[in-house]
Design a protein around this nucleic acid. Structure first.
Lengths: 121, 121
DNA sequence: ATTATAATGATAATCAATATCACTTATCCA
DNA sequence: TGGATAAGTGATATTGATTATCATTATAAT
């Protein structure tokens, strides 16, 4: 998978796996420093990218143009709050149940990723 | 809606309405310059933001960290190609029909926007 | 243990997006 | 109709998230 083991990558991945808050790079960096005080922000960026590339994490883009990361690779929708900016998992199905949990839904975007017909040829 | 009319805003909105390519700011700027050669990039940014704020356009964030814009406010999913980066509308329902049109779907993200339970109180 | 090179950490560079500000122009109203 | 007011513009500086660079460190094969 990876060419070599590194303590930094292990810590970055552990930090990401142990939270459900869909953190930003900076948050992961702060948490990782509690274990490896010398770890640099570039290393956190690099390893998060690598994890995404290897299918071990996903990027969640928020309207404030920041990347959030999620190590939960099961297919599941997210909820982004326009007030506090938090990113949360949505485990129920459809608007009705979300509303019952207290979420006020204003809109919903669905995006498919892959290869378009032109490029597939 | 807007406090004053401006030719620039009209042109920006017309450009956006007349395409289905979900263009970037730069593309809208280039098109707008064909009508108003003096229009500045800041004005295009400003007016696209205003259109979004007033519910006349939507932002589509792509994995290359660029904003694309869409004046089609009906609820519809998008397809983003990892090869050419294009953003396309998906009019059919479910993976099967998309696949039949030649799209190779690798993943799908759904995001709800609104106010979370904590902020709603 | 030696060697090759992947990975790191500090920091410079990039670039999309935003803020600033002097100037222009749409709209109001006397 | 013409001047006043302030919204809107255009040029450009600034910001800030992300990426690139490169000397150094550390993994893993021999």
């Amino acid at each position: 998978m990876f060419q070599r083991y590194s303590k930094q990558r292990e810590v970055v991945y552990n930090v990401l796996c142990q939270t459900k808050t869909h953190p930003t790079v900076d948050w992961v960096h702060e948490e990782a420093k509690k274990v490896l005080p010398e770890i640099g922000i570039a290393t956190v960026y690099r390893n998060l990218r690598e994890l995404v590339k290897h299918g071990m994490a996903k990027v969640v883009l928020t309207p404030d143009n920041k990347e959030h990361f999620d190590a939960d690779m099961t297919q599941h929708p997210h909820f982004i709050c326009k007030s506090c900016g938090c990113v949360m998992d949505v485990t129920t199905q459809g608007h009705t149940n979300i509303a019952q949990k207290g979420f006020v839904v204003e809109s919903c975007d669905t995006t498919f990723f892959g290869t378009c017909p032109q490029c597939a040829n």
